[in-house]
Design a binder for these strands. Structure first.
Lengths: 337, 337
DNA sequence: CCAGATAATGGTCACGTGACCATTAGGGCT
DNA sequence: AGCCCTAATGGTCACGTGACCATTATCTGG
């Protein structure tokens, strides 16, 4: 692999001069610049970011830790983050915690070993890693949470405005005439704290309803758990007339369960879900969804992180909320046919 | 960020000794080892892979270039590759070419700058980057193609056995009684060379059929193009009785088109597709698919790359084919109801 | 014609590590 | 006692870069 020394030798200049052709070309005489450029071209020289990172004390790499890359939300986020990072000359390291805090820790160690300059993280459940993140931050890695944040998080974050979305969703169902509205379970308040399930009761109160305790179960956050819970809920003597799924993955479980039970959407039960996943428009009927501006969120995340890194303002905390958008397609209708 | 020097100082040993606690602990006296371990623990020391990579002349990073991270095939692949890389102590850099060779080149440059030790790549279409890849290889990056390979590729690869799958798919449809079978277009033989569309005519011949020229169009490889083509095909005077989609993305386009045309699956037309995407079991009817062993392929890819990197056998070319699995769910039936 | 400014180029060193070689102490053998 | 062997530990240097300082040539104004 040729180094700048090879370039310098070939161009007949000192290494310092050769490097200036890349970093501060305006300082060079046009003829010298041209000669160096030619040498770079001929040798196929590409600056070594490993050496540069060591010397600089700061790498041009960014870490992204997702909860589950299979979920389209994270896939879209990854694409958006990757695009933005590339545009700014940063490589993107991706890790998947599978929402498991011990895997998360392993991945954090890897990221730390690689000395990533910034970290965008959707933290896992259980979360004994807050201290580790704080330590990384104290040592110069800028940390930004996305899609979720720790209570009292000291970090920047980029989030959907879950509160606004849940309120809007509940109001939408309410105005269609629904009174028996259920989310697909509560998440565990400590193990899987979640804004959406936390504000649901408030959203119900805002329209003069209160959540039916019979519908409230603490579940794991997965398609399978949502599938099981939907079966249970719809077999109650007084089943919900509308299901409000707080994530796209859970909607798939609910949809599967409703089909198995032979329940028609929206005649027998309405279904509303977060996340405009592509399958939601392929099924019959197409589902009403609350879309997140994922691309924008990814862009914003990279911008916040890299601005802080490059301007050396690691202490700057930036928090941005993004609105969701309700898309009506026909899976919600007045109750009772 | 503490370095091994800090650890050594705190443990009261020489830097060399401190490092041995990590790299060759068997050489140390138990008491010394314990003291160094304690110092590492207290300081929260994590070896700097940037410095190590520079000195070693080899980083512990792997590059993964996907065609489109949004496609579940690539999302699953990414997860599998990330898992395996993590298990071996390598960080994974992910880039998305969006199947565009100019974006691909930008990403390759980034990877090269970061001195990735290995590269797993699903190459883009158009592909003027073969030379660049060869150059990277000549400079010590082990390259492995996945899901697709250049004609006369000099690299290792991991692939589905597309030939076997297409043959099996065609035979399946043939035995159900179909004679008018169409793929969703040919890909451009130069711009988007593709094994599956190339062997389709052979597979037809193997059952005594030949592809209907009226069904053969060169299309782009996208959901939208597949949607348009399906509309066209089904409006022909003699439309196909069975559609064979060569990718999961295209199946979504075909499915959308069939629904818009009001055609029933499988009564009016059978639909068979590659890739067991989760939506294919959610729609009505659930689709017959040819599943790829994506996880295994990802694991194999990392294994091949890292074994070559770590054993310094960069010249070793390994090529593996994986069988697909046909899953019947009800979207294919004898023609004519 | 020269001081001082500026343009252009050159030289040196440290970042943290791993490879390699060097040194010391103690134990077993003749 | 003298030798060698091994266990345990220490010292040095280069990887390629970027920050910083140094040097030389050319120009400008009085």
């Amino acid at each position: 692999m040729p180094s700048i020394l090879d370039v310098a030798k070939r161009a007949g200049v000192a290494p310092t001069t050769a490097k200036r052709a890349i970093n501060e070309p305006h300082l060079l005489a046009p003829a010298t610049l041209e000669r160096v450029r030619k040498a770079i071209e001929e040798l196929g020289y590409e600056p070594d970011q490993v050496a540069g990172g060591l010397r600089r004390g700061r790498t041009r790499t960014l870490g992204l830790m997702v909860g589950n890359i299979i979920e389209p939300f994270f896939a879209s986020l990854t694409r958006s983050v990757a695009r933005e990072a590339r545009a700014r000359g940063y490589a993107l390291m991706v890790a998947d915690s599978e929402y498991d805090s011990s895997l998360e820790l392993q991945n954090l160690r890897l990221f730390r070993g690689q000395r990533v300059s910034g970290l965008i993280i959707r933290s896992a459940f259980g979360s004994p890693n807050l201290d580790y993140l704080k330590q990384m931050q104290a040592r110069g890695t800028y940390i930004l949470e996305i899609d979720h944040f720790y209570p009292d998080s000291p970090f920047s974050y980029v989030m959907l405005d879950g509160r606004q979305c849940v309120f809007e969703g509940v109001r939408y169902l309410y105005e269609l005439g629904h009174r028996r509205i259920a989310t697909l379970g509560d998440y565990h308040p400590v193990l899987t704290p979640d804004e959406r399930s936390r504000v649901f009761p408030e959203a119900m109160q805002a329209v003069g309803l209160s959540p039916n305790p019979a519908y409230q179960r603490v579940i794991e956050r997965s398609e399978e758990a949502a599938y099981q819970l939907t079966l249970e809920l719809m077999r109650l003597p007084e089943p919900p007339t509308a299901l409000f799924s707080l994530t796209g993955s859970e909607a798939a479980g609910a949809f599967r369960a409703l089909r198995e039970l032979g329940l028609r959407i929206p005649q027998d039960v309405s279904l509303l879900t977060f996340d405009n996943y592509s399958w939601t428009s392929l099924v019959t009927p197409p589902l009403d969804v609350i879309e997140q501006p994922v691309e924008e969120m990814g862009r914003a995340a990279v911008e916040i992180v890299l601005d802080a890194v490059e301007h050396q303002t690691l202490d700057k905390v930036v928090r941005r909320r993004f609105p969701g958008r309700l898309i009506r397609r026909g899976s919600c209708a007045p109750p009772g046919g």
